[in-house]
Amino acid sequence: MTATIAYDRDVSNFIDKLSATGHVTHTSYRKTSVTLHHNAGRFSHQGLLEVWKTRPASAHFDIDAAGAVAQYVKVNEYAWAVGNMVGNQRSISIEMANETLEPGWRVGEATWRSAARLAGWNFAKVIGERPSKSNLFYHHRWSSTQCAGPHMDDIYDKVLEAAEAAYDLFRDSHPSPRPDTEPFPGTSFFHTGRKSPIVAASHQRLVAEDCNRYQSSADADTWGPGDVRSYAAWQRKLGFVGDDANGIPGKTSWDKLRVPNV
C-alpha cells in the first residue's frame, strides 16, 4: 500500500483506492500553494471516495466532521481538484466536510482548524514557504465556483492565522530522539539532524545503488535521500507500526536492516 505523509496525527490511507478510479494523474510537480474546498455534503472519508468513483474528481486530502484526516493523492501529484490545469499542478487540495448544506455551506470548527493545521504542515514540509494570502486559497481562486462557501469566506483570516501558527510549529519542530537513536558528531544524513556512522555509511551505499529505487521499494514518495517521510515509509515496510515508524534513524531500525556497524 502506498504510504501517506509523515504527519504527526493519524492519516487514513485512500491513495490506492482513489488511484483505482483513474481520477488522478500520476505526474509530479513542485507545489507552491494550498487550496481549501468544501465537499458539498456531510461525507465520511469513505463516502467521499464513493462520490469520486463515479465523478471525475479528486483531492489530496479530506477532513471529516470530526477533524480526522484522510489522504487520497500523493502531495506532489496532480489531483483533479480545482478545474484549472496550473492550479492542479501547483496546489495541494484539501477537502472539508460540511456541517450544514446550502445556502450557507458551513464547515465546523473542528474541520476547518484541522484543515488549516494540515495546510501549515504542507507549507512547512512540502512547499517551504510561510502561508499567506498569496498562497493559501479557496477553490474559487482557480475557477468559477463559490467553493469553499460563504462561511469559509467570512472566516478566511482565522483560517490563515491557524495555518500560520501550524507552519511555525512544524517549521521549528524536530522529532525527539528515541532511546535507540545514536547521536554522533559525523556527517548528517536525514533532515532530523540525527547523526551516526551507520547512517552515513548506509547513505553512501544507498546513493550508489540509486536512492530513488530504495524509496520506491518502500512505497514512498521520492523526495531525495534525506527525507524523514521516506525513511518512515521504509520503517513501515520493515514492520514498524505507530510511533516506531517515526522517520528517525536509530539502532533498532538499522539492526533490523542488518546494516553493518562501520
Rank of each mutant, 00 (worst) to 15 (best):
K125D: 11
Y167C: 13
D172Q: 11
H151R: 04
R130I: 01
A124M: 01
F137C: 01
I155E: 07
T145F: 05
F170I: 03
L136C: 14
G149V: 04
K133H: 14
R171M: 02
D172N: 13
H139Y: 13
W121M: 06
D168H: 02
S132G: 11
D153R: 13
M152W: 14
W121L: 04
H140T: 08
A166F: 14
S143I: 00
S144H: 14
Q146P: 03
L169C: 06
H140K: 14
Y138C: 08
L160T: 07
H174N: 11
D157I: 05
D154F: 06
M152A: 12
K158P: 12
G128Y: 10
F123R: 00
Y156F: 06
V126I: 07
A163S: 10
A163F: 03
F123W: 00
K158S: 15
W121F: 15
Y156E: 03
H151D: 08
D172H: 11
S132R: 02
Y167K: 10
W121N: 13
P131H: 02
L169P: 00
F137A: 00
S143D: 13
A162Y: 09
E164N: 13
H140D: 14
S173R: 11
S144I: 08
H140P: 00
A124D: 00
F170N: 05
W142T: 05
E164I: 15
G128F: 09
K125F: 05
K125N: 14
R141Y: 14
L160V: 08
S143T: 11
A165S: 12
T145S: 10
A162Q: 12
R141M: 05
W121P: 15
F137V: 01
G149N: 07
C147N: 15
S134R: 10
I155C: 05
